[in-house]
Design a protein around this nucleic acid. Structure first.
Lengths: 200, 200, 200, 200
DNA sequence: TATGAATGAGAGTTCATTCAT
DNA sequence: AATGAATGAACTCTCATTCAT
């Protein structure tokens, strides 16, 4: 089936070009911010000419939105995989922070895009990001806090606000990592701090 | 002494125009971010023509830097005044969060400028902001945590990292306030959470 | 080889657009001077939108510098070609003035740009122009005066200062041409005057 | 007569302020050219506030025009005084160049304004300057060349074109003086050159 | 007379986007 | 699918000029 084969190949190429553009976008959006980053340079950095971006994304704005989606998905997947390998809620919370900072240090540019977007002035971007991060929020509430409260490992707390607090702490520290992606406090101490606060 | 009087009047006017421009800048920088905010509209919003900004600030960038200084000073002064009215370290910590969120809800635009700048891509702005916030950092470390650790109210912790953690939590929640400036958790619960974590 | 052909075509277009812009720049810089000439109008006069200039030159300043280079090269080439067709130093000197004024009257705008730049306040422009005109200076010194002095056609003079004097006279009269490019004295009389001065 | 006295004093002050402004204008127009020179800085350099310029001149353009007049008058007066101290046409010609370069080196800024204006793109300025320099042109024609031709010291030449040629040479060299106002050739050599050309 | 705050027209420059190739 | 020349809106900044004091 040569045509099929060819089509698959073409799709692969398509998807690869797309990914190269997203990666370059990550780099520039993180370094310069959305406004100062420039489509020409992103495209060039990915190895293409300016116009190519518009064969894959309808606009610079669309490029950013799709990048946000892709970052949120990758970030969530990595943390969820790690957290779900544990059963114990306390260990799960520790894993959450460990895996979280591990992802950040392995994906510095994406991490910065996420954090600047979260605190940035563009409400469309912010909303899209929050949609993307809803699963992570859920993970903390229903797969870490809920079982922990049920098992008596944590004191009784309101699930959603406390999940929010934990996300806030995670993201707060995520925003303060150094150039190698290390937080100012080791992840263990951060989870210790939170565990202290959740302790019965 | 009419000339003296006149001079004072002139200086008053000068300083007032300057303040009007800083306020308008606050508004626009917070709503649109530094890049999209536009000098013409800022000046018009303050009641002046476009060129007037350049009689008071050397550039848009300078306007932003001076705004950062002014925000940091006002923010610190408000919190320090409130914190220092208490003697007890536990009450001081509570006051820190109370006053902090009170300032934010009374200065929403400034608060947003501060938070977007802190997480934004512009390193000059970030550095200037960090210089401006150094006193607040000091306040937490040496006027809240140190006496608390000494009096036995808090467990022994490393001062600076813990001050950083508290600032991170404060700013993290500061970034999540709603349109009326209310944090998702009441300040008491946030300080409770931290106090739990600091408890002996 | 269609791609080759296409490439050559593209380069041709590129170079043509560039030349149109340089020509329009000549026109405006000569009529209004560098400061009052305006990029928008230059671009429009060349048949393009304002932004197009910046696809070919990095700035208005760069446009001017490249125009200076192009003028100096064209001016020198024309004069050198004419001078070198003669062997006799006296005839060469006459040709120098004849060809010089011929070039000026055929390139009025470029001539005016050259002369205003030479006497203008911008030192960068001036320096660039002097670099561009160094070959013409050389031509006078080593291909006209030196052989003339050697053959006894001219009296013994210091080569470089005298070359400077001749250039000064040429440019001085170049600056006084009328709207059709005619100098106030016919070129023959000018070279006569100089020949009188150089006569043994 | 106190009122009279006062009035004279006031006029003196007026005239002095005016002169200070003209001097500062000279400085800035020569250094930066008319377009880039800026009224505020000229006024400040003269020791006044921006607005003061407009109490003495109707516009920046008017300031320039009056400066041109003042330069031409001073330049002519200096040269004419020197030339007229001689009787011999040959000596007069030598004096012309000597005094000319002496004036230039003692009035560098004014000299540069004159020369850039002469070759600059602004036709109003140029015309005003030519009006101002008409007397000097006359001086050369009727007080140097005419008596020289009559007495047989010079060969028969057309007066006005030759006066133009001499002015062109003078101004051409004037445009090439170094930072101390010295021409590339000593004035004696320049007048020698011209005398050679005029010799019977 | 001297001042300098305010003005706003006008400039150079950037860059997202289009589209013919 | 990939290109990159062309576009023009939008932006920051400068500065001659006015005018109330």
């Amino acid at each position: 089936m040569p045509p099929r084969f060819k089509k698959a190949e073409a799709e692969e190429m398509h998807s690869q070009t797309r990914q190269l553009l997203l990666d370059a976008a990550s780099e520039y959006f993180s370094k310069l911010g959305y406004e100062k980053a420039n489509v020409d340079r992103i495209s060039k950095a990915a190895g293409f000419a300016k116009g190519t971006v518009y064969n894959y994304f309808t606009s610079k704005r669309d490029l950013m939105l799709e990048l946000i989606d892709s970052i949120a998905a990758s970030h969530f997947e990595f943390i969820a995989n790690s957290v779900r390998q544990e059963e114990d809620p306390v260990r799960r919370l520790q894993r959450f922070f460990e895996a979280g900072f591990e992802w950040i240090s392995a994906n510095l540019a994406q991490g910065r895009v996420m954090l600047t977007t979260l605190n940035g002035p563009d409400l469309d971007f912010k909303e899209r990001l929050q949609q993307g991060y809803a699963p992570m929020f859920q993970l903390v509430a229903s797969e870490i806090l809920a079982p922990g409260a049920e098992s008596g490992a944590f004191r009784q707390v309101d699930l959603m606000p406390t999940a929010g607090l934990i996300m806030t702490i995670y993201l707060g520290f995520g925003a303060t990592v150094d150039e190698q992606g290390r937080p100012p406090l080791p992840p263990e101490q951060i989870s210790d701090f939170v565990l202290h606060a959740l302790h019965v």
